Amino acid sequence: MIELTPAAEADIPEIVELSNWAYRGTGEVASWTVESYLQGERTTVESLRADLAANASAQVLLWRDAGGELLGHVWLEPLDEGVWYLGLLSVRPDRQGRKLGRGLLTAAEDYARERGARRMRMTVINVRDTLIAWYQRRGYALTGDVRPFPYGDDSFGKPLRDDLSFVVLERAL
């Protein structure tokens, strides 16, 4: 069973490090979900702090092993009427292929459900076909809603192509 604990201020640098490794890392231990169409960091300590401050009901939940090593994390945020937003789901790339992401996703859904969530929503960059398919195999469906990519705001990374947007996926819990 995966135990998720809310992140504290002191955890933010470690969350940022894992996020950047999982989303933008390269080399032998790169994630299968690496965002090769974006350049730069996925997040910074400053931007994660700002995002959390701007979304008071949001939290990053951590998954640590028995020795305290960070295995993964996920952003959860109640939106409205039983709908929660899930984002920044990350597991250590050097541990992928062991169904850790699937376990973390299930634990995050359970956590939200226990707190009143009836639907989970997320956004995924439209060109991430493999990742979208992974979520669809776990019960998420494309809603048809498409949101613009924040071109000109390099805090998310510098886009290397001009056709990016976010697709919305949802799943009933």
Rank of each mutant, 00 (worst) to 15 (best):
L4R: 08
L4E: 11
A10E: 15
A10S: 14
I12S: 06
E14W: 10
E17C: 08
E17H: 08
L18E: 03
N20W: 04
W21T: 07
A22V: 01
V29K: 09
A30G: 00
A30P: 00
W32P: 15
V34C: 01
E35R: 14
S36T: 14
S36N: 13
G40E: 04
V45C: 05
S47K: 08
R49Y: 07
S57Q: 14
A58R: 02
A58K: 06
V60F: 01
V60I: 15
V60G: 11
L61R: 00
R64Y: 10
D65F: 06
A66Q: 14
G68R: 03
G72K: 02
G87I: 03
L89R: 09
R92I: 07
P93G: 04
P93H: 01
D94S: 14
Q96Y: 00
R98L: 12
K99M: 12
K99W: 10
L104Y: 05
L104W: 00
A107I: 14
A108C: 11
R113I: 01
R115L: 02
G116F: 05
G116R: 04
R118I: 10
R121A: 04
T123C: 08
V124F: 03
N126S: 15
R128Y: 10
A133E: 15
Q136C: 09
R138C: 00
Y140W: 13
L142C: 11
G144D: 01
G144T: 11
Y151D: 13
D153C: 02
S155T: 12
S155C: 08
F156Y: 12
F156G: 03
G157T: 04
K158F: 13
R161S: 13
S165E: 02
V167L: 07
V167R: 10
V168R: 10
E170P: 02
R171E: 06
R171L: 09
